[in-house]
Design a protein around this nucleic acid. Sequence first.
RNA 1: CGGGGUGUAGCUCAGCUUGGUAGAGCGCCAGCUUUGGGAGCUGGAAGUCGCAGGUUCGAAUCCUGUCGCCCCGACCA
Length: 514
Amino acid sequence: MVSPPKEAPAMAEKITPRGTDYSKWYQDVVKNAGLAENSDVHGCMVIKPHGYAIWEKMQQALDRMFKATGHVNAYFPLFIPKRFLEKEAEHVEGFAKECAVVTHSRLIAGPDGKGLIPDPAAKLGEELIIRPTSETIIWNTYRNWIQSWRDLPILINQWANVVRWEMRTRLFLRTAEFLWQEGHTAHANQAEAEEEAKKILEVYRTFAEDWMAMPVLTGPKSDGQKFPGAIYTLCIEAMMQDKKALQAGTSHFLGQNFAKAFDVTFQSREGKLEHAWATSWGVSTRLIGGLIMTHSDDQGLVLPPRLAPIHVAIVPIYRKEEEKTAVIEACHKLAAGIRGIAPDPWLHYEPISVKVDDREQYQPGYKFNEWEVKGVPIRVELGPKDLAQNACVLARRDVPGKEGKIMGVPLASAPERIAAILKEMQTGLMEKARSFRDANLKTVDSYDDFKAQIDSPGGFFLAHWDGTRETEDRIKNETAATIRCIPSHLPAEPGKCMVTGQPSKQRVVFALSY
RNA sequence: CGGGGUGUAGCUCAGCUUGGUAGAGCGCCAGCUUUGGGAGCUGGAAGUCGCAGGUUCGAAUCCUGUCGCCCCGACCA
């Protein structure tokens, strides 16, 4: 008679494997890594400290890049008078469906003495919209700032929250309120504005690849997918691990649309009155969703070192008091050594971020798992056995399980070793993501082939398209796939539309998307 | 806004069919033992059962109304 098997530890499997249910996996990672949670407010999330710390790292890197390209930060109002939004036809049409509207300025007790109701006497003369984006308020303001060609260009960015009243939301990927940056620039001529839109796209591409280790395709959107009010929209588009596309950033050439709508004119060098040329561009907290879905595994979050709020977690191991004293001391000494590594431009000359996990209420095993699920790139284990030989154990987050452990690393050389591994991880993650993306980037020539593959195995499909909205809509209706971008890295190779057989100037990227 | 589901402890849920003093696991608090991959034992705190009516001697349970939330569809960074 064999005794019944012990029950699996109740805590063991907190994260649904990707293969079982990708969407559940995503939610589990966000929750278990402590990045964010749903709030009691419909569609709005609470970004928790660990998630917000990642956003702060993103902000820092992006902000530096914006400043380096001549931009400055400013802040415009959260509320936008309804009449502003009405001024640009396409813009209204695009955003009207998802606007939060402020109608009153005061609450009073309800008629039965219970609760509060908007005071009818305090109804606003003009209703205010909570910004879904700020083009209108900003161009209304620029009208006063721009008179002469000497006032141009205006290169402004703002870090802000916006509200788009979404029906269905997912943490980071789509929430009613989200955080982002929005750049709004004004230029004296078309060429300069178009140059700006391209320049920012390149900033986004660099950030995505060099910081997030997330490879992206770049290029214009189809007219059907462009920003409401833009002449054209450039985008960076990334492939998630389930092979779906994520629009990760957009840069719009707005032409003179907003200048005309808001009557923003300037006198040129030649003395003529002209409308200003505009761009706008943004990336949002959605990037955190992209970061998660690019690198993380069934154990939890995996962070590229350049965006990790904590690079190294040191876990002391001990039994007796004497051991504890010696081990903790060694941990802090090692931490100081790691922080003392020569500043590297790679981390903006900031020290490597180290945390000595000296919490007494948790055992080492618990801590190992916690740092793992939170995506800390390197974990150091330091106990009496290690101390006896002046060494420690390093565990790499990008190599799961025991294989990621490096035993017997001398304490004296550990800091240098850690610094080297961090760099290695950053490029390793990028290479891994790129080869995954490339392996799932396919060329198709027949619509039947396309339909057979779009759901499974899935991926990005390079196909010829006749350039019409009708065909784009038909493909969307029949397969749910959309044109993600018209890739600029490919030579324009003419062909025939996979659906209609009409002439096509070049292949475009189709995929299912978030 | 259409279809489905669900509200009971901080969290996940049982109890409801057949009405009779509120339950479990996790978490939390205290103590002891533990500590190299999510510790164990003992004790403890914690819920006007979404809200409002009704039926009844008695309602988490039955009836009516109401509100919130979740999932699925049309829109989107």
